[in-house]
Simulated scan of single mutants.
Amino acid sequence: MSGGELTDEQIQAMSLEERRELIMRLTQATAGTRMPSSRTIERIRKWRLALMLVCVAVLIPWIVYLANTLPNHYVARRWVATWVGFDIILLALLVLTAIFGWRRRMLLFPSAFACGVLLICDAWFDVLTSHWGENMLQALLSAVLVELPLALILIAGPLRLLRSVAIRNGLVDPRLPLWRMPIPVPELWPEGKMPPN
């Protein structure tokens, strides 16, 4: 070991703030040209936020319009292709999630989250499009016993793992709940300090 290397014991003895500072220095030293500039990151962030606000502004009147104009009963075309196609997409995402989990890849986070959301959608549409009686009972049981619990596992598990990775690497304060944790982008922090929690 050369004189400039840190041992595991020295790293463990560091305070949380010292670890964050070390991580920021390492990030800045290895960023190179592959990382976008802080100006680019901030510009992209602002455009995406503006896009989300426009979507919200358009979606609200659209929902009101649909609620007032759609018929209560509608015969759908390509019903089989719709549901089989949906299940094929869900199957593909489940397979990818299993592969990413088995190989311990970061893509597990978005694929598992997407699977969870699709399972919630599947439960929602199965229940709401079922006729009263045996079909409705089957849809409710499937939703309550299979789809919604699996969705919870697929959404909550990766979110907990994401939080653990951020805490373990000293990027965020471990006392904060996930919904309050900032995105760790050292170049955007004033004076090299972590953003306020």
Rank of each mutant, 00 (worst) to 15 (best):
T33D: 15
F86K: 03
I183P: 09
I44A: 00
P182S: 02
P182A: 08
R180T: 03
L152A: 14
L128N: 14
P61L: 08
R77S: 15
F100M: 12
S111G: 05
L137P: 01
L176D: 01
A123N: 06
G170L: 05
R105P: 06
F86P: 01
R105Y: 07
L26D: 04
W79R: 14
Q28G: 01
L188R: 08
F125W: 08
I99T: 03
L119K: 12
W83D: 07
P71W: 06
D122N: 07
N135S: 14
G3E: 14
E18A: 14
P36W: 03
N169P: 09
E187W: 05
A156P: 05
L150I: 02
T97K: 02
E18M: 12
T69H: 12
G3A: 13
I153N: 00
F109R: 05
N135G: 03
A98D: 05
M14Y: 13
C55T: 15
E9A: 08
V127H: 09
A166V: 09
A50E: 04
L70N: 13
N135E: 14
T7P: 09
L140V: 14
R19Y: 08
I23F: 13
I44K: 01
C121L: 15
T40Q: 15
L96V: 10
E42I: 02
W179L: 03
F100T: 12
I155A: 00
V75F: 14
R168W: 07
V58M: 01
W83A: 10
A81V: 12
A67D: 11
H73R: 15
L171Y: 10
L148F: 07
A76P: 06
V117W: 08
E42Q: 11
N197V: 02
R48C: 03
S15P: 11
E17K: 11
I155G: 05
A143G: 05
D173E: 03
I99Q: 06
V165S: 01
L171M: 11
G32H: 05
G4N: 10
L150V: 04
Q138A: 03
Q138L: 12
M52V: 06
E191K: 05
E191M: 08
L70V: 15
R45A: 06
L107H: 13
L70S: 14
P61Q: 08
M1Q: 10
A123L: 10
W47C: 01
R25A: 07
K46P: 07
R45Q: 00
L6E: 11
M14E: 02
L159M: 12
M106L: 12
L176R: 02
G192W: 03
I63A: 09
Q10Y: 00
S111L: 04
V127M: 04
N135R: 13
A139H: 11
R34W: 13
P177W: 00
L161W: 10
G157I: 09
L90S: 08
S37A: 11
C115F: 08
S38D: 04
A31Q: 15
V146Y: 11
C55H: 15
D173K: 01
W179G: 02
W179I: 01
L176H: 10
Y74K: 13
W47S: 12
V95Q: 06
V95G: 06
E147N: 11
R48Q: 06
L119G: 08
V172E: 04
V172C: 11
V54R: 10
V54Q: 07
V185A: 03
A123P: 08
I41T: 09
H131Y: 09
E134I: 03
N72K: 13
P158D: 13
V117S: 05
S37M: 09
V185G: 04
